[in-house]
Amino acid sequence: MTDETIIDVHDLSKKFGELTAVDHISFQVKAGEIFAFLGPNGAGKTTTIKMLTTLLHPTSGEIRMNGFDPVHEQSKARASFGIVFQDPSTDDELTAWENLELHGILYHVPKQLRRQRMDALLKIVGLDDRRNDYVKYFSGGMRRRLEIARGLLHHPKILFLDEPTIGLDPQTRNHLWNYVKELNTKENITVFLTTHYMEEADRIAHRIAVIDHGKIVALGTSEELKQKTNTTNLEDAFLALTGSSIREEEASAVDTLRIHSRMWRRRS
């Protein structure tokens, strides 16, 4: 890790109509750091990642990704990162192998290196013998593993992992984190991950930002968070910071209506 700041976020907000999904957050991630966003469902983690990765425009605030503004310097910003999305994003009508190949080409990974990594990654995620099967016949867990393999196919400066371990068995989880750690140390890749599993953040992240209702309520190493809240484990620290009420992730009927009424309007 160096002292160079690679992700710089200042006073960032995102509103969806009345709802403030991300509420004036600021933070910096250093080059080579593993940085975690820890927060309950609906806290605003994915929305933040979408703004960092050019998929959504902020309502206000500033972002620098590897020095570039994801709103006005989209292609330079895009060349700086790779991402494993929270939601499915593979092509069902293609095979696992074809999905990887397409990704490798979009990210300009040279053919030989691409094939080599595709082989290795398919083994890591346990899909080696299913490489020529259509993704539409895959189970949820298999799709997830394919997405992860795909996300690791090229080695960007910054790697985003949005709740990567949801739906994974413990073995694959373990493989994944070991691989990510290795990428981080060997290739000095900055990792930005989100999770709502405390032990994952605790185990892998150098620093953790606890986010709730769109606001960062605490930021520091796992030790610092425990000290701050006077707790002995991160789980208690987390509950102390975010309260213990259960959060709903599903869109309410009103949200659904809102989505339909947006049909003809461009998203703000």
């Binding site: 990765t53 050019t54 895009r78 060349a79 991402i83 999305f85 939601d87 593979t90 979009l106 990210y107």
Partner: peptide, 8 residues
């Protein structure tokens, strides 16, 4: 679509 949208 997201996959193509973020591609460099």
């Amino acid at each position: 679509l997201k996959e193509t949208m973020v591609a460099p």
